[in-house]
Simulated assay, not measured.
Amino acid sequence: MGACLGRLGWTPEAFWKATPREVAAALAGLGMRPGPGAGRLARPELAALMRRFPDEVGTEGGTGDDRTR
C-alpha cells in the first residue's frame, strides 16, 4: 500500500479499487517482488480469517464493511 500511495502516487480510492493482480503488476513495474511467505493462504488460514471477519450483514442493515464504523 505504501509503494502504491507513495511511489506511484495513487489515491487511496484508486488503491482500494485495484485488483491484487493490478497491484502486483504496478509493484513489478517498480522492480518490487513479493517477499517470503507471500502467496495464497492455506485453507485453515482462510477459514480462521473468515471466522474472525465474517461477511455477514448486521441486523442494522449495514454492509459488513468495518471501514465505515
Score class of each variant (00 low, 15 high):
Gly2Glu: 09
Gly2Lys: 06
Gly2Met: 07
Ala3Ile: 07
Cys4Asn: 02
Cys4Arg: 01
Cys4Pro: 02
Leu5Met: 07
Gly6His: 10
Gly6Leu: 09
Gly6Val: 08
Arg7Cys: 07
Leu8Arg: 02
Leu8Pro: 02
Gly9Phe: 14
Gly9Gln: 14
Trp10Val: 03
Thr11Gln: 07
Ala14His: 04
Ala14Cys: 07
Ala14Glu: 04
Phe15Ser: 01
Phe15Asn: 01
Trp16Ile: 05
Trp16Met: 04
Lys17Ser: 14
Lys17Tyr: 06
Lys17Gln: 14
Ala18Pro: 01
Thr19Gln: 00
Thr19Pro: 01
Thr19Cys: 00
Thr19Tyr: 00
Arg21Tyr: 05
Arg21Trp: 04
Glu22Phe: 00
Glu22Lys: 01
Glu22Met: 00
Ala25Cys: 07
Ala25Ile: 05
Ala26Gly: 02
Ala26Phe: 01
Leu27Tyr: 00
Leu27Asn: 00
Leu27Thr: 00
Leu27Ser: 00
Leu30Ala: 05
Gly31His: 14
Gly31Phe: 10
Met32Val: 15
Met32Ala: 12
Arg33Ala: 12
Pro34Gly: 04
Gly35Ile: 05
Pro36Lys: 12
Pro36Thr: 14
Pro36Trp: 09
Gly37Leu: 09
Gly37Gln: 07
Ala38His: 14
Ala38Arg: 14
Ala38Pro: 08
Gly39Ser: 05
Arg40Tyr: 11
Arg40Cys: 09
Arg40Glu: 11
Arg40Ser: 11
Arg40Thr: 08
Arg40Gly: 13
Ala42Gly: 12
Pro44Glu: 09
Pro44Cys: 14
Pro44Lys: 15
Pro44Ala: 12
Glu45Leu: 10
Leu46Val: 09
Leu46Gly: 10
Ala47Asp: 13
Ala48Lys: 13
Ala48Leu: 11
Leu49His: 13
Leu49Asp: 08
Arg51Thr: 04
Arg52Trp: 06
Arg52Asp: 05
Arg52Pro: 03
Arg52Met: 04
Phe53His: 15
Pro54Asn: 03
Asp55Trp: 03
Glu56Ala: 14
Val57Glu: 11
Val57Trp: 13
Gly58Cys: 02
Gly58Tyr: 08
Gly58Val: 03
Gly58Ser: 04
Gly58Pro: 00
Thr59Trp: 15
Glu60Arg: 15
Glu60Ser: 07
Glu60Asp: 10
Gly61Arg: 11
Gly61Ile: 13
Gly62His: 09
Gly64Cys: 08
Asp66Arg: 13
Asp66Ala: 10
Arg67Pro: 05
Arg67Val: 12
Arg67Tyr: 11
Arg67Trp: 08
Thr68Tyr: 06
Arg69Gln: 12
Arg69Asp: 12
Arg69Ala: 14
Arg69Lys: 15
